[in-house]
Design a protein around this nucleic acid. Structure first.
Length: 190
DNA sequence: GGCCAGGACACCA
DNA sequence: TGGTGTCATGGC
């Protein structure tokens, strides 16, 4: 059923090419900045960082707090996010230095990184098979009467156990569901 | 002009 | 565990 819906979405919306980023670190930054935030605003923030030549772990860690806040301001919640971005960057440097990929739990241990952000980083930055659940995914499941729960991890297990363990499929499916959700909203349908 | 976006967390009962 | 308040900008 899930694979059938997947192919149907793919036919309707085409390949989405997520995640739009030039570097692995840019994906990590985007994952944090996009929390409850329109992607367009995140793009502005990332553009600011690039223009300032500051889109690297070293620069972000050394930058003054107020400076970082002003650069990422368009992404909203900029005071919270500035502090959390530094914490996450510290963890990212640690992961990069040791060479082995991050465990989900160690990302979740970073303040400001919840399940969706952790899974986004694991999937889109590190290419690990973790399905990402968001508000659209829950609506998608309810709409098609596929599954229902309050727990994030229930949804995650549902998708991961119903789909082939494929990183490209996980990446594309989540992007397609977001596209489906936006489309649904634009048409004002329930 | 109100509502919401590719959430997470603190605090409470 | 479940419910609510807070964080903030920009588009429609």
């Amino acid at each position: 059923m899930l694979m059938r819906l997947y192919r149907s979405l793919l036919r309707e919306y085409g390949t989405q090419r997520w995640w739009p980023a030039e570097t692995q670190y840019e994906v990590v930054v985007g994952a944090l900045l996009t929390q409850n935030t329109n992607w367009r605003n995140v793009e502005r923030a990332i553009a600011n960082l690039k223009k300032a030549g500051a889109l690297s772990p070293g620069k972000v860690l050394r930058m003054r707090r107020a400076r970082l806040e002003s650069l990422i301001r368009p992404s909203g919640f900029y005071r919270q996010k500035a502090g959390r971005l530094k914490l996450l960057t510290r963890k990212y440097v640690e992961i990069s230095r040791r060479g082995s990929p991050p465990a989900r739990d160690e990302l979740l241990a970073v303040k400001g990184v919840g399940k969706e952000t952790a899974d986004s980083i694991l999937l889109y930055a590190f290419g690990l098979p973790h399905f990402v659940i968001d508000a659209y995914t829950r609506r998608f499941c309810a709409h098609h009467k596929l599954f229902e729960s309050r727990e994030y991890d229930d949804y995650k297990r549902f998708f991961e156990s119903s789909l082939p363990r494929s990183v490209p499929v996980y990446k594309e499916y989540r992007a397609l569901i977001v596209e489906w959700g936006k489309d649904l909203r634009n048409r004002g349908a329930p």
